[in-house]
Design a protein around this nucleic acid. Structure first.
Lengths: 333, 333
DNA sequence: TTGTACGCGTTATCAT
DNA sequence: ATGATAACGCGTACAA
């Protein structure tokens, strides 16, 4: 395998200096058509392409963006990643996918991203603590952005779905369908807070005269946790005291809950109990589930994030409006 | 935001030359404990970390690996990506996620990866043509590896699940359960061939005296395509001529098919027709589906790939053994 | 063990 | 418009 040709090699072949070669590859540089043609011919023969590594070293711009993900369990990650990579690439940016876990924490990842000189970091996960991200060693690192949840970190903008509007719309629908005994399944306490869904849910029902909203705590945002949580609730609650609609903090929880309601307790959805989720993942649409849910404005969120990264938009927390998706799991009529 | 400190800055503060600083950060370099301590103290104060960009330029090693994905529709991608990123990171490699689509094809991606000097490229998709990858401009690029499907590209090893063994095991189970009229749902012709599942399936049944195996062609490897394919088949086939078990090339197809069988045609699974898939995606395990399937040895495949990338193992096509997962969708008893 | 010269391939700036 | 010089931050090879 021959070594990559450099601008010098092309220059030699074309009979010009290497700087002329660079100009030929620089849009808008001052160079004669003749020179450019000579250079391009030689470059074509040698199969030359500029070395982006060297370019980055000189310009201090890598055009790389790190995406930190800590929750591959959630099927919702996939369509967002797809969109994110798509739009980043369209802007000439390259996504670096970083898996955050016990062995490879946020600080580690951020330090590494810093060493790699990424232009920006997107926090696309559920579980990170503000204190962690204020580690002194992270000073002067790449600008960070939080995607699809809140950020309480000073100077780190969050781009998320407007939970207040979302829950308001969803609950209005539930109420219209006649449900009056709502329950809420929340994920881990601290993470749940960052999503803001639980609070909005309670607020809505209190406003409409429902003081007590039972809470079904789930250990994590996964199907199995959703299954466990609802299983525990039903075992502890007599049929008469049961809620008539269960709102889950995301679809993974909702689908896990739905499975248990039907297969383990023989309950009919929505006749015996209605279920709603959040995210509109692929399987929410499957006839086997037919889940009412709320779709986050993925495209809008992703584009907004990238606009901020590129400085085309003010780097400030925004909440974007999603879309209510009503399906059979909450339709009484 | 202060500029990143360089080895020179640390050297000045520590009262040594910058090369001594580099040695302090080079495992196994010859340096006095005293010098190293001085350097580390200064480095700590300045919050210095070596610039990996510059290092890469000098060493010709980026420790970056590009992962080319063209099928984010398939839920199976997510757990594999999770594992892949995890194991790559454990080896100090950084995954670059590349979304292959109409606007950003394989050649484009590979050229870009080449310019970025990645150490290796993992082809983790379904649809790529060999001719494309033999583009002359791709000469001397990073070593490529095909993950989770066959490779007919000379010099490009494939790491996949052994389809022959898999289908053999799966079919043995089906036959034992008494099924004798098997049908196969295949994805797009050329892609299907690369998986080798269809061929193995036919071979098995011919060997056991079943000459005619109806084929249900699906347009792509998605749930909706699976739904369409089975819908079309049932509309065209009279009840008496119907197959009694449907093997789908992957779980996405199988779940789509299962939904249609039950919700649109009122068929019971497995009583009226059994269904099996391939991949063991998360939802195959859900009570709503309870799908018999075959699990690819993800961890094994990923580790093997990385071993090849790092040169710890011969770069040669291998087929690894997975695991049969029997569930309710094929159990008659 | 430590310091020096030079190279990696590009960009920025200046002189011609 | 073109060529030359310096710089980006680190690694290798060699000399002290």
């Amino acid at each position: 395998m021959a070594k990559r040709p450099t601008s010098q090699n092309v220059a030699d072949m074309a009979g010009v200096s290497k700087w002329t070669v660079i100009r030929a590859f620089t849009p808008g540089a001052s160079i004669t058509e003749e020179s450019r043609a000579k250079v391009m011919a030689a470059a074509g023969q040698l199969n030359y392409r500029p070395n982006l590594l060297a370019r980055s070293l000189a310009t201090n711009l890598t055009h790389q963006v790190a995406i930190l993900v800590d929750d591959f369990e959630n099927p919702h990650k996939l369509p967002v990643l797809e969109r994110l990579t798509l739009e980043l690439q369209a802007e000439g940016l390259v996504p670096m996918l970083v898996n955050i876990n016990e062995r490879f924490g946020h600080v580690h990842a951020l330090l590494n991203a810093g060493q790699r000189q990424v232009d920006a970091v997107i926090l696309f996960g559920t579980a990170f603590r503000n204190e962690t991200l204020q580690d002194a060693r992270l000073e002067g690192a790449a600008p960070m952005f939080v995607l699809a949840r809140d950020s309480q970190i000073p100077g780190v903008p969050a781009i998320s779905c407007d939970a207040t509007i979302a829950i308001e719309e969803l609950c209005a629908h539930l109420r219209e369908q006649g449900y009056r005994r709502p329950g809420f399944m929340a994920g881990p306490q601290t993470l749940s807070t960052a999503l803001g869904r639980r609070r909005s849910f309670k607020t809505f029902w209190v406003r409409h005269g429902v003081e007590h909203v039972p809470e079904l705590p789930a250990k994590s945002y996964s199907m199995t946790s959703g299954a466990e949580a609802v299983r525990h609730y039903l075992q502890e609650t007599s049929a008469g005291d049961r809620i008539d609609v269960l709102m889950c903090e995301n679809d993974a929880l909702a689908l896990g809950a739905l499975d248990v309601l039907r297969s383990e307790f023989g309950l009919r959805v929505p006749q015996d109990i209605a279920v709603a989720g959040f995210d509109n993942i692929m399987f929410a649409d499957a006839p086997a589930y037919d889940l009412t849910t709320y779709e986050q404005p993925i495209e809008d969120m992703v584009k907004t994030t990238i606009d901020m990264i590129l400085g085309r938009r003010e780097r400030q927390t925004v909440q974007l409006r999603g879309r209510l998706v009503v399906r059979g799991s909450t339709k009484r009529t």
